[in-house]
Simulated assay, not measured.
Amino acid sequence: MMSPGPAPVLAALACALSATACSVPSIVPSTAPPLVQVERLSEAPAVPLTPANTLMDITSPLDLPVGLLVGNDARDRPTLYAVPNMPSPTRPHVVIARLYVGRSSGPQGPRAALAALRRKASELGANALFRDGGDAARVAYAVYVAPAIEALESAPAPEELLVQEAGRLAEYAPTRAAQRLPLEGAQEVTLALARGRCYAAIVAFDRDAVLGQDGQRGLSVETRSNDPLMGTGGFLVTESIPGPDGIELTAPLHGRYIDLRSFTAPLGCAWEDGREAAVAIRTRAGGAVLGTGHYWLQILEREISDVELEQRRKDRDAATRDGVQR
């Protein structure tokens, strides 16, 4: 340990030799914990308190459990939301409070701030602490994360989902029968292309399908083609989720998928006959393991005029010149 400088020591010696009262500068740094301010948002559930040292520590929106998402509130502040009745109506997630922590000086500052936040969250009835940004975050949330449960109702049949999604693509017609494929090790499907045809995909999860952790964080439909117009690209699969106070949230941008069972994706249009495209579903990180169970893939097409095809080529060339890859 470093010894104090000479000034405090000499002042203490002078006080000892003096007959009058005097003050001595402190030679010990303050150990007072950082102040935590609380903005109460909801009442905590009636469950036993979780000790501060065992609280779940969550530092990224992508690590939030299903049913908790981050979006901007009416004042455009990033805010943590709990989707009502998730994961169950009787035991939902609860965002108990928003916490603000003061800065603490010295090498132990971030550690002291985290300890103060954990203590306060525990006192409020939380079993988790969410800090978007980790140790650098000055705002945190005291959260009760409810235990996960199995689905209460059977999932819809994939045949129903395929018909439902096809209704959104009325101008398209199937190119082949739908294929049943595994979520674990999702494979590529090869498509023969024809000039002047635009293609789309419908994906419907089978009843045995369960997305894994990576799959819940985001899926994309990837297309690789040797056609000069279609080229290579990806389509991020999103799910619209109504949030509190009329705020619209979107998974996976604000958190994990909630109830995603089917979706459609554009694949692009072909400039030449005789070309091919490979279509595959991947996680947002590029992985082929999406979860367990199966999904159904339906490829559809529609024909466009030469005028529209030429316009698409011009749009693609203009976007490429501007540095945007479509």
Rank of each mutant, 00 (worst) to 15 (best):
R118C: 01
P92F: 05
V95L: 12
K314P: 02
R111Q: 15
G255P: 01
A194D: 06
L249H: 00
S30A: 14
P48Y: 07
L219F: 05
V221Y: 00
R168H: 12
A173D: 07
L309M: 13
V66S: 09
V210L: 11
V94H: 01
E303D: 13
G5L: 12
A265Q: 02
V38H: 06
A140H: 01
A288T: 14
T250V: 14
E248V: 09
A166Y: 06
G109R: 10
R195M: 09
Y199L: 02
A46R: 11
G293H: 02
P87W: 03
S122P: 02
A270R: 00
D57W: 04
R207C: 05
E303Y: 04
R103W: 07
E310H: 15
A155K: 08
L300Q: 02
L260D: 01
T54M: 08
P45H: 08
Y295H: 13
D322V: 08
T223L: 01
A265Y: 00
G125M: 01
G102V: 05
V70L: 11
L99Y: 04
L17W: 12
G212M: 07
T292M: 12
S105Y: 13
A177R: 12
R91L: 09
L211N: 02
G231H: 04
T232I: 03
S88W: 01
E308S: 15
N72A: 12
L161D: 02
S305F: 14
A74M: 11
L49F: 10
P242F: 03
P65Y: 00
Q179C: 04
T54W: 06
M86R: 14
W271L: 14
I304T: 03
L69V: 07
S3P: 09
P92I: 06
A204N: 05
P252W: 07
C22R: 14
A126V: 03
R118V: 00
D76V: 10
Q325K: 12
M230N: 00
P45L: 07
T175L: 11
A14C: 09
G274M: 08
G102H: 09
D306Q: 15
V307F: 15
V221P: 00
A140I: 01
D76G: 04
M230C: 04
D206N: 11
S305P: 14
L193V: 04
E239I: 04
P266H: 11
G125K: 00
L183V: 09
P33Y: 07
W271E: 10
R224M: 03
A209V: 03
R321K: 15
A319R: 15
G246W: 05
Y81W: 13
Y199E: 01
P110Q: 08
V24L: 15
R40N: 07
F130H: 01
P92C: 08
G133E: 07
A204M: 07
I247V: 15
T292C: 07
A44C: 09
G215Q: 04
P174F: 06
G71Y: 04
D76Q: 14
L55Q: 03
L236A: 11
I27T: 12
T223K: 00
A136F: 09
G185T: 09
